[in-house]
Design a protein around this nucleic acid. Sequence first.
DNA 1: CCAGGATTTGCATAGGTATGCATAGGGCGC
DNA 2: GCGCCCTATGCATACCTATGCAAATCCTGG
Lengths: 352, 352
Amino acid sequence: MRRLPSRPITATDVARAAGVSQSAVSRTFTPGASVAPATRAKVLEAVKLLGYRPNALARSLITGRSRIVAVVMAYLDNQFYPDVLEELSGRLQERDHQVLLFTAKNGSASDPLLDQVMRYQVDAVVLASTTLSSALARECRAAGVPVVLFNRTTDDPDVSSVTGDNLGGAERIAAFLAAGGHRALAFMAGSETSSTNRDRERGFLRGIARAGLPKPTRVVGHYTLAGAAEATRALLSGPARPDAIFCANDHMAIACIDVARHAFGLRVPEDLSVVGFDDVGAAAWRGYDLTTFSQPLQPMVEATVGTLMDLLENPEEPPRAAVIKGELVVRGSARLPAGGFTTHEGRRVWRP
Amino acid sequence: MRRLPSRPITATDVARAAGVSQSAVSRTFTPGASVAPATRAKVLEAVKLLGYRPNALARSLITGRSRIVAVVMAYLDNQFYPDVLEELSGRLQERDHQVLLFTAKNGSASDPLLDQVMRYQVDAVVLASTTLSSALARECRAAGVPVVLFNRTTDDPDVSSVTGDNLGGAERIAAFLAAGGHRALAFMAGSETSSTNRDRERGFLRGIARAGLPKPTRVVGHYTLAGAAEATRALLSGPARPDAIFCANDHMAIACIDVARHAFGLRVPEDLSVVGFDDVGAAAWRGYDLTTFSQPLQPMVEATVGTLMDLLENPEEPPRAAVIKGELVVRGSARLPAGGFTTHEGRRVWRP
DNA sequence: CCAGGATTTGCATAGGTATGCATAGGGCGC
DNA sequence: GCGCCCTATGCATACCTATGCAAATCCTGG
């Protein structure tokens, strides 16, 4: 019963079976095209009979739209990204677009990758990798392909981006830690070349200055678990042990807590407060119960898809730099200030 | 300086610039084609000058190969899957193939999804979703598209699959718990329709029978955090509290530990042992330190890609059902037997 | 019953590349 | 120096669908 797929069924086959022209078949699958209901019915019957499916590639060749969006990602072990991916893919599928996924090895050159992206005639590109050189963005734009940077910005004011409130969030974290009575703060940087890290550090420093606290100790965790663990060890072995660490993302904060607890026997938050950024799923796990500034997934993805669709309609659209507000979600990994708590969407949050 | 993308550069443009025919350009990009080095050089120069990139879609139209592999996934919040995705995508990119990602909402019908998959003329499909109906697999095969089931099997002996050692692993877990002196075992099922769950349950029961222990209590966690939390509450509130729970995957085991510790004040493993399956990254986090049976990612993905490539070369290839062996990775979430420990790739493992 | 407008239909072509075939060119041996 | 063979090249066509245009059909109102 293993019937060989003799030859793929084409629109011409369907046309012959339905006794109409190939054009009629095409129009049946083109929304808004002019087809008589009777013809349409005949066509659909033949389609069902033969198991025909339009060839999206051939269609793209003519229309110049592939309905494919390239998504470039790295760090998929940081839960934030798969969550973004799932949401993004879902939203795009809803709008009849597909996701062509490119995973960038962390240190790898982006050139061959860009080549592949361009060859597939993607309609747009979402760059959701903090590390990739912004050359990629520039080249895409040069080729006339709309680009949206996700969770990342670049100096080029001509490229659209969607980010969380890195500056404001980090500043609020500083205020929160100051209000909680911490005096010796530390900052664990992620990847030093990333814009998220730059903004979060800048915001944190600004908040610290405002609170009149001394400059924080600084270590680098490279946005990886291993890097964060090592950075934590360095920090806690040093002469001036901090009483609070702000890690540039949740992923690192988790490693930080693990090391503090199990390698140094510290209690969190009694001996050491740890705060993260992103509010990934694991931050709510009771084993970590992480206080963190949220990057609201759905609004961020909606802004991305919205920008994308607008750019597809009109490539001349001026670029947007959307900054999606978040909240400081208070859990149990940092000592609490006396007041300032509110409830937001069922979670306890803090505002200065 | 915003140069409008006047018109995409085609091979004909390059040919004109290089003073050769369009065929020569095409052959320059076709490995093994007959082109004189001098011609090739002229072409490449023009290519660079104009910024030409071959149109992969047009190429696919002729060759009948798109070099696109559809990957259908769900449950991206279970860390196992993004890890698989990253590895799979990397391996396929190495072999010049691209990943078209389809995320299946957990309960959704697979038909419109299948339609999209087929329209894009993908060369092959990887089904990595425990929930999706096997109708999808059947239909793909009917259309002559190679399918590999990942972490899942089906009754149809004609479709290839790659899984971990669900039966053997679960059986070993039972033996491990028995050797550790547990007497009242419980099993937390995942999605009851999935083959992984079926096999893990079957293996667990077999191991229990072999050890001469009574049948385990059974709850269902649906492979979700919320489901697992509720199942754990039901289990621990019940009359006969178990002294060990085998959760059908790590994702659920984590929720289980959280509830046991924080809602019931139990100590893990002193009051309750918890064992998972998969050995995801989070299992090694010190906050959970989960004992679990590993599904080795790289071998599984390699087997998948290997099968895929072979099927692409020869669609008549007989189907394979690869079962990748794993190890019982011993950490701190379950009471330990007296002996049976070994070291395997730097991790402590247990063999009966 | 007819004219005229609106709607539907088919024809032909385009979109960018790969490839079979025939031809042109080059090198080598005798 | 000639012939032969092998390599390199160009021409023409095919892949499958969408769409402008002209022709055909239908419907409506007078």
